[in-house]
Design a binder for these strands. Structure first.
Lengths: 239, 239
DNA sequence: GGTATTACGCTACGAGCCGTAGCGAAAGCG
DNA sequence: CGCTTTCGCTACGGCTCGTAGCGTAATACC
């Protein structure tokens, strides 16, 4: 992550256990305190190490949190559910489950925000998280093309752009739904997302569901579980 | 925003000019310093007001930045370009232009990150920014349905969910593209996004070069010369 | 086993920001 | 003209930051 051991140098080696303890303590602190109230002194205390040890390994809060959050996304895997739509839904649900965890929510968005003014940090995020998970898109596309569900794209560069687009759409939608709209990315929502992604808005929803009532009505996902918290907000200032 | 004036109370009224100066100063500070290094003392200095005045109007950094950023999004408008695809592209390009501004980038994501641990702040964001701009989705859908480009949805609740989904997909994709992938949401990209949104991945966008000019008409930008903004980066990972 | 080298824990420190309190003065309202 | 509220200013305790210095612990090399 932050230390690549070129060869074994002389002297006392760094404790790998301390690394794990620090990253775990960082996630715990993110859960309890969130980004802005998280202090490195507190993380050091939780991890049972000295504050100076933290500064010897990470340049600051940003880099530490990136590494702590990146570990969360390594558990993503591409299931084989038999169809492209099912595969997409499976991955999106996994991604949503990770984003439902508070340490991922506050940590990820905060470092992304910081990365807008720090090129090195942004590259760290891209290398540690984004590029590492783009494999899911590539594998899913390849499998779907093998199944004949997606047209093969002979142009490799164009295919790369499409993969980037898919990643931005899927990851962005889940993040926005979870963090901004503050609603769960649950089964029905993921189904609707997948449908738009594969067939677009102009194609009516899937026809299964030998209905009980509708004639023209395309089936729709069951009603969402959680209702919306409609909180009045005073907005008055324009300019 | 933070104070709704029920009626004109007695006493010296708050300076509206100070409000504008403070919000402008906040945006300027966001550009120069970013979120984490922004201090309220600095904002007060830039705005030419006392620090205590800031605290009399806003509870803290979070609320101040939300209001400062919210003003940026009020300039969004739905153009009438004659077709749904063109309308969508127009709005998305406007949104991308706003997100290209550094004060929007760092400020918006930072408050979203903070909102993960602050329900009141999240509602403030939703009320001040998100819900206020969802009108674009509703208006665009209505116009497209009037044109016959989209099927009308008789179920209002289902229509609302679809509008939410569209908003999450579009806003999320632009945000992810701009802030995480760190690539411009420019014309070609927006065109591809719009195509997937309307027709899905299973519909091939442009056949691999059947003839000279593409068949699909409205606003068809050339395939572009694949600008790769690969930026050099140190990624000097630690000792 | 001895020595060099590095990591670690601990303490202490100046610097900066936070958020609040108190004061006198200024600016509208009736 | 009083009354009420805001404004600018100063000051303050409290907190966190990031670094320096020191003695100690753990390993590699000879």
């Amino acid at each position: 992550m932050q230390s690549r051991t070129p060869v074994s140098r002389a002297g006392r080696p760094r404790s790998a256990a301390a690394d794990a303890a620090i990253l775990a303590a960082t996630r715990a602190a993110l859960v309890e305190l969130g980004w802005s109230k998280l202090t490195l002194s507190d993380v050091a205390l939780r991890a049972g190490v000295a504050k100076t040890t933290l500064y010897r390994r990470w340049a600051g809060k940003n880099e530490l949190v990136v590494d702590a959050v990146a570990e969360l996304f390594d558990e993503l895997a591409l299931p084989d559910r038999g169809s492209l739509a099912a595969d997409v839904e499976g991955v999106v649900l996994q991604f949503a489950a990770i984003l439902a965890r508070p340490e991922a929510r506050s940590g990820l968005m905060a470092v992304v925000a910081e990365a807008t003014r720090d090129d090195a940090l942004r590259e760290r995020i891209r290398g540690s998280i984004v590029e590492r998970q783009k494999r899911l898109v590539l594998a899913g596309r390849a499998r779907a093309q093998a199944r004949g569900e997606l047209p093969a794209d002979p142009d490799p560069e164009r295919a790369a752009r499409t993969a980037d687009l898919i990643f931005d759409m899927v990851a962005g939608a889940v993040v926005h739904r979870t963090l901004v709209s503050a609603q769960p990315a649950d089964g029905p929502w993921v189904t609707a997302l997948t449908h738009v992604l594969l067939h677009g808005l102009t194609t009516p929803s899937r026809p299964p569901e030998p209905d009980t009532t509708a004639t023209t009505r395309p089936t729709d996902p069951p009603p969402t579980a959680t209702s919306r918290p409609t909180e009045p907000d005073t907005t008055a200032t324009s300019q």
